[in-house]
Simulated assay, not measured.
Amino acid sequence: MAQLDDYDLKILTLLQANGRLTNQELSDLVGLSASQCSRRRIILEQGNLILGYHARVSPDAVGLGMIGLIEVRLINHTSDYVESFHRMVAEQSAIVDAYKTTGDADYLLKVAVNSLAELSALISELVAGHRSVSHVKTSVVLNRLKENGLTIAAPAPLHQKSA
């Protein structure tokens, strides 16, 4: 992939905020013709700088309103243990993001489930019970403030009764 210029960076930024922009809308915002924007978008897609387009769906809409962050430490880092853990992560649909990290934990998993009971079962059966795992530490997300670089609307404040 050739060096990105200011037009490419602007296209990427605009599409990250709204992947539904047409080439004409994009061209109006970037200052290029629609055909130039289309060619640049195709080059960015083929160069794997645009990885896809998707709808941001509320977790509540699909019954996955509980988000958990699970720090995982492996017993050891032999290829057998690592590959086995990676396979489990790939096969488990409740794990929506997985990162190999530095620090105390080897991995950080973001999971989306329906309930606390489902989160507990996931931790017990798939993470803590997996032969590669030596330690887990879980945090439950109370409020999502920002995801994928986008601010999430703040929940309505709780009203307190006056005395």
Rank of each mutant, 00 (worst) to 15 (best):
L69M: 13
L49N: 04
R20V: 07
M88R: 02
L108M: 04
L69N: 05
D97N: 10
L49Y: 07
L122N: 01
A98M: 07
N114V: 11
N48W: 03
I50F: 02
A90M: 11
V111T: 01
P59L: 04
L74F: 11
L49C: 05
A121D: 15
Y53W: 11
N114K: 13
A117G: 14
I50G: 03
A94P: 02
L109M: 01
D97C: 14
A117W: 11
V30L: 00
L51S: 12
I75P: 14
S33A: 05
K110P: 02
M88K: 07
S120Q: 14
E25L: 02
L26N: 01
L74I: 14
G68D: 01
G63L: 05
Y53C: 09
Q92E: 06
H77P: 09
S38F: 04
R40A: 04
A98Q: 13
T22S: 12
E71G: 06
F85P: 02
N114F: 12
L29K: 09
E71H: 10
Y81H: 15
E118T: 12
G52A: 08
Q36K: 07
T101F: 07
L74T: 15
L44G: 04
T101M: 03
S120V: 09
S84L: 10
D97T: 14
N18Y: 08
S33D: 03
E118C: 05
I75W: 13
Y81R: 12
T22W: 04
A17R: 11
A17D: 12
L119V: 01
E83R: 10
I67H: 08
I95M: 03
F85K: 01
R39V: 09
L109W: 01
